[in-house]
Amino acid sequence: MKTRLMALGAQEVRFFFWLVAHNEKRTIAFLSRQISRMGDGPLYALIGLGLWLFEPVSGQLFFYTGLVAYALELPLYWVLKNSIKRDRPCHKMTGFEALIEPSDKFSFPSGHTAAAFVFATVLTSFYPVLLIPAYLLASLVGLSRVLLGVHYPTDILAGMVVGLTCALTALAIV
């Protein structure tokens, strides 16, 4: 079992470096930074507030559902990150530098990805026509975090699971 886990870890590191190799192109590095910034959080709050104020049919319920979802996601993400304490690739690998400075020390799960999938799931529950762009953007936020060198692919996968779980739980509660 331990040998399989080590093999999976080695495959993930190879995949990580394959993805990061694409960031040598300035355009991809620039786009990765911009997409990652979209996942910082203020954009979600601005859209939620805008819908709450100006969309009379579902805007208010969307806003409150989002608040519940993020109230679940943030503590879960924080507990997981600070319990598992997985070092970021840029802090673990000698000679490797990330394209951005991460906001904290640990990488698992990806908070940007979790927040992006919370937003996409809640948004598309109220506005299904936005399904493809919402989940595409959430996926790109996750990919951008790997391309910037601050997360491994499994950090992104875990962030996606955390985000989906918290959003679906919030939808069930509200």
Rank of each mutant, 00 (worst) to 15 (best):
M1K: 03
R4P: 01
R4S: 10
R4N: 04
L5H: 13
M6P: 02
G9I: 01
A10W: 02
A10E: 15
V13L: 12
F15T: 12
F16M: 15
F17K: 00
L19F: 14
H22A: 13
E24R: 13
K25M: 05
I28Q: 07
I28V: 14
A29H: 07
F30A: 06
S32H: 02
R33A: 13
I35P: 00
S36W: 03
S36P: 01
R37Q: 07
G39K: 01
G39H: 00
P42T: 05
Y44H: 07
Y44F: 15
G48A: 14
L51D: 02
W52N: 07
E55T: 12
S58F: 09
L61S: 14
L61F: 11
F63C: 03
L67D: 02
L67S: 06
L74E: 07
Y77C: 08
Y77N: 14
W78M: 10
I84D: 10
D87F: 15
H91C: 13
M93V: 12
T94S: 15
E97F: 14
E97G: 13
A98P: 14
A98C: 15
L99V: 05
L99S: 12
I100A: 12
P102C: 10
P102K: 11
S103N: 09
D104R: 07
D104I: 13
S110Y: 02
H112D: 00
F117W: 11
F119I: 10
A120T: 11
V122H: 00
F126I: 03
L131C: 09
I132H: 08
P133Y: 04
P133C: 11
P133V: 07
Y135G: 14
L137V: 08
V141W: 14
G142L: 12
G142M: 15
R145V: 03
L147M: 11
P153H: 14
P153M: 11
D155A: 12
I156F: 11
L164G: 07
C166S: 09
L168H: 07
T169M: 13
T169G: 04
T169Q: 02
V174W: 01
